[in-house]
Amino acid sequence: MKTIKVLGSGCTKCSKTAELIEKLAAELGVDATVVKETDVQVIMGYGVMRTPAVVIDEELVHSGGIPTQTEVTGWLQQ
């Protein structure tokens, strides 16, 4: 079970990122919860400056834009 956080202050790109991850997780049958984290203090805690960013099981894997399908699939299959 993976906990995936999408960091970002609620911009459209952040929602799109979260949707993409949810969609691919469902397609691949990966058990994952996707949470949108909008609190600036928490975002700062991960040292992220470009949003949207993606944190999987407390590890920062991506920042600064909507990830590609290939990237997301890679994270989910790990």
């Binding site: 970002g8 202050s9 911009c11 790109k13 600036v40 975002i43 700062m44 040292g47 992220v48 400056m49 470009r50 949003t51």
Partner: peptide, 16 residues
């Protein structure tokens, strides 16, 4: 380049 929606994370990143 950075999107204005990132200005707060950038501010905090620089500050910290």
């Amino acid at each position: 380049p950075f999107c204005s929606c990132s200005s707060i994370p950038v501010f905090l990143g620089f500050t910290s």
